[in-house]
């Protein structure tokens, strides 16, 4: 479904991604794990067209999308919950959710979708007239995920959904990620919390300083001694 081939990205003269190649197949949950600054978020930005590639190519459903404008990539059914959640703090919950469906035209479908999101996150319904900036961290994450679902994406990119959240909320968020995947959405999950990420993912890639240093099924990575030492804390 999604394939990166030798993708390179520079920030100024500093290479952020050095020849990244990987694949995400339809229906999978794939995770990118690695320390802060490894280049995980940069990959998501590159996929969505927010930053230009220095080399390589990104294909999605057989078409090359690298080099296209972000708004055109989003229109193809890719949705991203960016680092720090990316909600619009100056807009109401309802307006935020509405923007999730910005590229869709089917009014009836959108309203049905909105109901699904409100059913899943009743808290958002209660706060629909409040501006995003007044929500708690967990609620903001729910809003960010709810908004991404409003796009009815085929491929959902999640950037550190666990960041800054209490353990119970993190558990809840990962349960939701799994459910979203079961309804047919392919997921690419970027996480520092490797343990949680590998507990829901089918496969994973381990990143270090702009490179992929190892990959395998979630089980293989969980049992890998190096990964254990570096990312699972024992």
């Amino acid at each position: 479904m999604l394939e990166l081939k030798n993708v390179m990205v520079n920030y100024g003269v500093i290479p952020a991604l050095k020849s990244i190649s990987f694949k995400v197949e339809e229906g999978e949950i794939v995770t990118l794990i690695g320390a802060n600054g490894a280049g995980k978020s940069t990959i998501l930005k590159a996929i969505c067209g927010l930053i230009k590639l220095k080399g390589g190519a990104i294909t999605y459903q057989g078409d090359t999308i690298s080099g296209m404008g972000a708004h055109l990539i989003i229109r193809r059914g890719i949705s991203q919950v960016p680092e720090g959640r990316g909600i619009f703090a100056n807009l109401t919950v309802e307006e935020n959710l509405g923007l999730g469906a910005y590229v869709r035209k089917d009014k009836a479908e959108i309203n049905r979708n909105l109901k699904v999101v409100y059913d899943r996150f009743p808290r958002l319904f209660e706060r629909r007239k409040q501006v995003g900036g007044t929500l708690s961290g967990g609620e903001q994450q729910m809003l960010a995920i709810g908004r991404a679902l409003m796009a009815a994406p085929k491929l959902l990119l999640l950037d550190e959904p666990s960041m800054g959240l209490a353990p119970l909320v993190v558990k809840e968020i990962f349960k939701i990620i799994k459910e979203i995947n079961q309804t047919g959405t392919t997921i690419l999950l970027v996480e520092q919390n490797a343990r949680m990420a590998l507990s829901v993912a089918n496969r994973g890639y381990v990143m270090e300083t702009g490179q992929i240093i190892s990959h395998g099924t979630a089980r293989e990575l969980r049992d890998n001694e190096d990964v254990k030492k570096a990312y699972l804390g024992h």
Binding site: C48, G49, L50, A70, H71, I74, R75, S79, Q80, P82, G86, I87, F88, A89, N90, L91, L99, G100, Y102, V103, A151
Partner: peptide
């Protein structure tokens, strides 16, 4: 509010 976030909405 944020140009990049807006781009991600399409």
């Amino acid at each position: 509010f944020n140009v990049d976030y807006a781009r991600l909405m399409g």
